[in-house]
Simulated scan of single mutants.
Amino acid sequence: MSGADLTLLRPAWLLALPVLLLFAWWLYTRRGGLGDWQKASDPALLRAMAALGRVDKSASAAPLLALMGALALIVIGLAGPAVERRDTLSFRNLDAVVFVIDASPSVTEDARWAQMLTMGRFGLASLGTRPGGLIVYAGDAYVATDMTLDHLQLGQTLSLIGAETVPDPGSRPERGLRMAAELLAEAEVVAGDVVLMTDGAGLGPASLQAAGTIAAQGARLSLIALNAPSAAFDTHAAAGQGRVFTLDQTEALANWLSAEARTRLQQQDYPLLFWHDMGRYLLLLALLPMLLLFRRQMS
C-alpha cells in the first residue's frame, strides 16, 4: 500500500472523552455570571456594587472552551494517532556461522579431540554479532543448537559433545553439510560460513556435492582437520570456496571468521511496519488554547 494510513496506537484513551464532556457540562451548569461569587457574597453587597458598575454579569464561555479544548487535544494525543510508514528501510544481519562437528568415536576419542574443541572455541569467540549454530553428526546428523546469538550457550554445548552424543554409528559428513545448508536457508542467510570439524572420514562425492550446494547459497565451507589434511580436504574447501585449517591455526581461523568475514547488511525484501506517532504534536497544540486561560485583562 502506498501513502499513509492513520490509526490509533492507544485507543483506550478515547474512553476519557465522554467523561470529559460530562465534566464540561458540570462546570458550565455550576458557573454563574459572577463566577460563583453570588453564592459566597452578601446579596445586598453585590447589588450595591452592581449599581456602581463594578460588577460584570456577562458570562464568557471562552475560558471554559479553552480548558476543554486543551484537555480534549491531550486525550486525543495520548490515544496515539499514528501514520503508517511502509517505506521505512530496515536492515538485518545476513551473515551466520554453522559449525558441523564429527562426533563419531574416531574423532571424539582421539588424543587431539581437546585441541579440536579449542579450535571450536576460538571460532565461537570470533563470531562477534554473527549468529551461530551447531550440528553434530556420525552415522546421522542432528541440530545441537539452532541459530542463536547466545555464544555462551554455543560454547557450553560444544564442550558437552562426546562419543555418546550421536548414537548412530558411522561417519556421514554429507548429512551434516546438507543440514547446515538447510539451516542457513531457513535463517535466510546469504553470506554465511560453514565450518566442518572432522578427521576426514566419509569425505567423498556426496559431501563434495553438499559443499557445492553451500557455495551456491552464497556461504563458504571451511574444514578443520583433526590430523594432517588429505587431498579431500583441499577439494572440499575449493568446492565450498573456503579454507582448510589445522589444529595449530587458531588465530587464522579466528581471523577468517571475523576480519575476513563477509558480514553484510542488506535491505530486507519485505517491508516492516512502522508507525510515526503524531500524539506529541497534539500535546504541543494543546498549549495554544491554554494560553487563553492566562490572558491579561487590560483596563
Rank of each mutant, 00 (worst) to 15 (best):
A286H: 04
R280Y: 10
T7V: 14
R47P: 04
R130Q: 15
A180H: 03
Y281S: 05
R85Y: 02
L226I: 10
L127K: 09
G132T: 03
R121M: 08
A125Y: 03
T118A: 14
V97Q: 00
G33A: 10
F122C: 05
R54H: 09
L272P: 01
L6A: 12
A206R: 09
T145I: 10
I101Q: 00
A40C: 03
L20G: 00
R121W: 06
L226G: 06
G192L: 04
V100Q: 00
A185W: 12
D102L: 08
T118F: 08
L226C: 09
S126F: 08
R264E: 15
A201W: 11
L223K: 01
L183C: 09
P173V: 00
F294G: 04
R130I: 03
G242K: 03
G202C: 07
D36G: 11
Y137N: 06
T148G: 02
S171Y: 11
P18N: 14
E260S: 15
L134F: 05
R47M: 10
I135C: 02
L71V: 13
A228D: 15
M116T: 02
V19H: 05
D168F: 11
G202M: 05
G202W: 04
M290D: 00
W26E: 10
W113C: 05
S230R: 10
V98F: 00
L78W: 15
E84R: 15
